[in-house]
Design a protein around this nucleic acid. Structure first.
Length: 288
DNA sequence: CGATGCCCCTGAGAGC
DNA sequence: TGCTCTCAGGGGCATC
């Protein structure tokens, strides 16, 4: 579920309770998530100070004083809940362990950070910090869409000569990292591109619009996540999920929100996943 | 190499 | 109430 903006929002919420803190206790409650936990996972974390919490694409990365980095991926249903922390004027009471709580981190300030993941598509690993770029889950990732490396030229190269639909190409983390089903649908709607458009059929003008759309959609989502963090200290301690209205995602049958369009949003299935689009303003054939 | 399907897993919601 | 079916914000892997 969480795409890059949600993961970044989780990171921003965790920084005040995790960065600079020591993990006094780590409880690993099952042997695996999507993959087995690495050997001696809890032991390698216990007593370690978290020097920095950063992010690559949808991966959270916690650099430890030991020289290892803790990698966390939330998969589809992964959530992080903070309790026992004092944030501003508000103290979060300790939350009892619940079903699907798989890892519990406790800090030297008494904060409890719980990883909860019903479907267990999430993952954790430990890897030498100095070699993190070569981690198997990170080494093939494409550029960050909000980073300096992203541009029209980069997007053009990612689509050039490809017969696959633009929807699949944008979901491919090797081409661009961090987009998921929601924000791909939203960006294609904003750029007025049909999700089935083959990569090679996307014109220069459309690539220009799509580049802008991707950046804008992600920035808007980050802003919504950021504003949700103001409320986080008062609420239930769950990080990363925020109220955000979507233009097409999950809006099948409803009216297109583009002014003057009047179309009705449709849902199609592409490589097993839903795509939503407006047939009126996202025509099948390239419009310009 | 590129494209496509399958699969991992649990839960929510719709329809009967 | 309960059964069955579909679908879910991800992505690795096998296959052609």
């Amino acid at each position: 579920m969480p795409e890059m903006p949600e993961v970044e929002t989780v990171r921003l919420g965790l920084v005040p309770v995790l960065e600079g803190r020591v993990l006094t206790h780590v409880e690993q409650r099952r042997p695996d998530l999507r993959f087995p936990f690495p050997p001696a996972f809890a032991e390698r974390l216990r007593g370690q100070r978290v020097m920095r919490l950063h992010r690559r694409s949808k991966y959270l990365l916690a650099d430890l004083a030991s020289g290892e980095t803790l990698l966390i991926h939330l998969g589809m249903s992964g959530r992080i809940l903070v309790s026992g922390a004092t944030l501003g004027e508000f103290h979060h009471p300790i939350r009892p362990i619940e079903k699907h709580d798989h890892v519990v981190f406790t800090t030297d300030q008494g904060a409890q950070i719980v990883f909860n993941d019903p479907r267990r598509f999430g993952a954790m690993d430990l890897f030498p910090s100095a070699e993190m770029a070569r981690h198997p889950l990170l080494r093939d990732l494409g550029p960050e869409p909000l980073g300096n490396e992203f541009s029209e030229a980069v997007l053009a190269r990612a689509l050039a000569g490809r017969a696959a639909p633009i929807k699949a190409l944008l979901l491919d983390q090797k081409r661009i990292a961090g987009l998921g089903n929601i924000y791909v649908c939203e960006a294609l709607w904003q750029a007025r591109l049909h999700p089935e458009t083959p990569g090679h059929a996307v014109t220069a003008g459309q690539i220009s619009r799509l580049t802008t759309a991707i950046v804008q959609v992600l920035r808007d989502a980050l802003a919504a996540g950021g504003s949700s963090l103001k409320d986080f200290r008062h609420t239930d301690g769950e990080l990363g999920y925020f109220q955000h209205h979507f233009s097409v995602y999950d809006r099948a049958g409803q009216g297109c929100l583009r002014s003057g369009c009047g179309g009705r949003i449709e849902r199609i299935t592409q490589s097993g996943r839903s795509s939503w689009f407006c047939p009126a303003c996202q025509p099948v054939l390239p419009a310009d």
